[in-house]
Design a protein around this nucleic acid. Structure first.
Lengths: 213, 213
DNA sequence: GATTTTTTCAATCAAGTGCTTTAATCATGT
DNA sequence: ACATGATTAAAGCACTTGATTGAAAAAATC
């Protein structure tokens, strides 16, 4: 029976907080243990090394997000049904919202952390995450190709890549927009942000090459 | 008369190389001076501190890019002419190509460096770069608003933000696409990449809210 | 209650960090 | 010839880095 949170959990929470705010490279063991009010040696005792702790952090939420992505996509395409581009993008993005709601983190912190994982992968993605990412990329490419038959595989890959960029930027620098414009752009909730992203990326996917309008 | 490159230049080149590859946070003074085959003290002698060196690196190319952006936009809108969204996006992106061609760096290195500057701004943008960035954001927002009068200011800001994400992702992780798909997506030159980005972002800008097709 | 087993802690390690100093050397222009 | 600035090597500074140790404390097991 634990009266307070376990040390392991304290470390994880502190690391998530600090990494979300400052990025993997800038966070030291002492930063973590001081912030978690825990002994320095605890990290190595519970996780083996700083690097392994970071791998845990990276997998903790991305894996569930990717599973949920595939699950949603499966629903869309079962029984040979052809989903729309918009539905597929929804299946790609919404899991971020779903998973954060199942966690104890705030949306902003969670999004930043996800952004860090995507943009600062601290020495490449953890080895055992690569297959999952690949499966997601392949499944969604296939679905998008069916949804927009006029596109080539190559083009779908490019535009999925761009979609990734839109998401990463929004996750990581959601507040930059606010500051750069002196608050002219409001502080919309996550749901609004997702609709904006989907509008933008859907149109991007459906664009014709060299389109003028 | 110098027979070989000046120490200052050697330091700058080595720093650009290392930062492009590993990011600001991961590069140490010794990394730089060893790589440049230069004495450790040289950095502080020529630049005052590591931080100031990094500021120089950040401004060295971003400032010219921003100036060229404004110049191109000015040409488009002179004499009260209303530019198209596509033309404006061109003015936003092409300066990256223009500037890299005027430099001595390879395209890939340059793009990665630009990506690092945008995504890892090493303790926020240098103070004297902020006004320039703001001017660019304001000018392009204004132009885009004129080009697509059906959009609100808020929406233009969001979509400019997304465009930024598309660029950053492409600059920084252009090779991720290649590796994640086992080379299924070719190795297109920079010009092709820009056309793909412009197609995608133009359509995104012209999207209607909640559009279904 | 005694005995393992797990967890926590302060202290410490070697290595690396940015930076500075001193002194010697090299190139330049006056 | 002298002065000036550039460059180097070497040493050292105070500090932080990730990791490890051995002993104490806590928890679980018997």
């Amino acid at each position: 029976m634990m009266e307070r949170k376990t040390t392991k959990a304290l470390i994880l929470e502190a690391t998530e907080r600090l990494v979300a705010e400052h990025g993997f490279e800038s966070v030291s063991l002492r930063d973590i243990t001081n912030n978690a009010k825990v002994n320095v040696a605890a990290v190595n005792y519970h996780f083996g090394s700083k690097e392994k702790l970071f791998e845990v952090i990276q997998c903790r939420y991305i894996d569930p997000v990717n599973e949920e992505r595939l699950r949603m996509l499966e629903v869309l395409t079962e029984e040979g049904r052809v989903a729309t581009v918009r539905e597929i993008l929804e299946a790609f993005m919404r899991p971020l919202l779903t998973v954060v709601k199942g966690s104890e983190m705030s949306e902003k912190l969670f999004f930043k952390l996800m952004g860090r994982c995507v943009m600062d992968p601290q020495g490449g993605l953890p080895e055992d995450m690569v297959p999952g990412m690949k499966r997601v990329a392949e499944s969604f490419t296939e679905a998008l190709l069916a949804a927009a038959p006029s596109l080539t595989t190559e083009l779908v890959l490019w535009r999925l890549h761009f979609t990734f960029g839109v998401m990463a930027q929004t996750l990581l620098h959601g507040e930059l927009l606010y500051s750069l414009t002196d608050g002219a752009c409001g502080d919309p909730d996550a749901e609004d942000q997702f609709q904006e992203m989907i509008d933008f990326c859907e149109a991007g996917f459906l664009a014709e090459k060299g389109a003028q309008k």
